[in-house]
């Protein structure tokens, strides 16, 4: 079978899982917002996986790409009346132009990709831990720009009143697309050579693998997916401000990526499922108070974060390769079946 088709078929198992979750949501009716959140989380963590999982460079900067997508799509689709009041420095043609959601989403993805290309060429000249810190610097730069460019982003006051364009079915479609694209990329020549460089960058370079160029490719692909995910996130949450794209969400994203298993696309999806479940279930207790004998805690701000910390530490100590491990589930099944046949 032609290899991209085989990879896509391999991703079918994960996709079927996502579709099942959506069907369960439709049958049960009620609040689809949580499932939409889940699909958006799947998309962004798959974006992270396609770069960090293959290259082995952990990115603390994906929220910069994600936030860029969210701001681009949000600004484009904001009600023109609101644009005129809030966003005074916006160029005139953007003030009046109110594109369709999919055009805005395509532009958000393009912006994510463009930022990735622009930042990736200098940053990915660095290697290992230096690259990790330079990517973190990108996150800080983005945070400053989102916060200080008040005439365009409305800064810390936040961009309010984004149209609710992120329906569950749209989020599902993009999650499925991201899963398939990431899987095909992982199995492609670029993905394979990149994974070789992850195991040993010097050996890979010594046999002629252009490690830097492949890293930049993965980073740009990741930027495109992250930009699209960001657009959906802005429409889903309705209000965005710089803190939505800074360290706390970065931590949640890293937890999703690591807990599920960083080497596989399936792991990314499993991690997104676990973290979304915690985010949606624990958040409701954050305003409650606790009485421990003499000690009374009035507000459990950051309880979600605490649960995420415990979860990731458990994984780090007990199973550093994550829940899914080294192989995609379809690869495990195939190996098992072949082993029996032989």
């Amino acid at each position: 079978m032609w290899w991209p088709l085989r990879s896509a078929a391999g991703a079918a198992l994960v996709c079927a899982g996502l579709v099942l979750v959506a069907v369960w949501g439709w049958v049960r009716g009620g609040d689809h917002s949580k499932l939409t959140h889940f699909f958006i989380n799947v998309t962004i963590v798959v974006a992270l996986q396609s770069f960090s999982g293959n290259s082995g460079i952990l990115s603390f900067g994906h929220m910069a790409l994600f936030g860029t997508g969210a701001y681009v799509a949000g600004i484009l689709t904001l009600d023109p009346a609101l644009k005129a009041t809030y966003l005074t420095s916006l160029p005139h043609f953007l003030q009046s132009w109110n594109p369709h959601w999919w055009i805005a989403l395509a532009l958000a993805a393009a912006a994510g990709g463009a930022l990735a290309l622009l930042s990736g060429i200098p940053i990915l000249r660095l290697d290992g831990a230096s690259a990790v810190i330079a990517i973190l610097a990108l996150l800080l730069i983005a945070d400053v720009v989102f916060g200080a460019w008040t005439g365009v982003t409305r800064g810390g006051a936040g961009l309010i009143g984004l149209p609710p364009e992120a329906t569950m079915s749209r989020a599902l479609v993009f999650a499925l697309a991201a899963v398939v694209v990431a899987r095909v990329f992982k199995d492609s020549k670029t993905g394979l050579l990149l994974r070789a460089s992850r195991e040993d960058a010097f050996s890979a370079a010594s046999v002629g693998v252009a490690v830097r160029a492949y890293r930049v490719r993965a980073w740009v692909l990741s930027g495109v997916i992250a930009g699209a995910a960001g657009a959906l996130f802005g429409w889903w949450i309705g209000t965005i401000s710089p803190t939505d794209f800074f360290l706390a969400p970065t931590f949640a994203l890293i937890v999703m990526f690591i807990v599920g298993g960083k080497r596989t696309v399936a792991g990314a999806v499993v991690g997104a499922a676990l973290v979304t479940l915690i985010q949606e279930q624990v958040r409701q207790y954050e305003d409650s108070s606790v009485h421990l004998g003499v000690l009374t805690i009035h507000r459990l701000t950051g309880l979600t974060q605490l649960v995420l910390v415990l979860m990731i530490l458990l994984v780090m100590y007990a199973r550093p390769e994550g829940i899914v491990g080294r192989e995609e589930p379809d690869e495990t099944i195939l190996r098992f079946v072949r082993g029996r046949a032989a």
Binding site: A248, F251, I258, L313
Partner: peptide, 8 residues
């Protein structure tokens, strides 16, 4: 990752 989690 452990130090990042510890910081949080």
């Amino acid at each position: 990752v452990t130090s990042f989690a510890l910081a949080f």
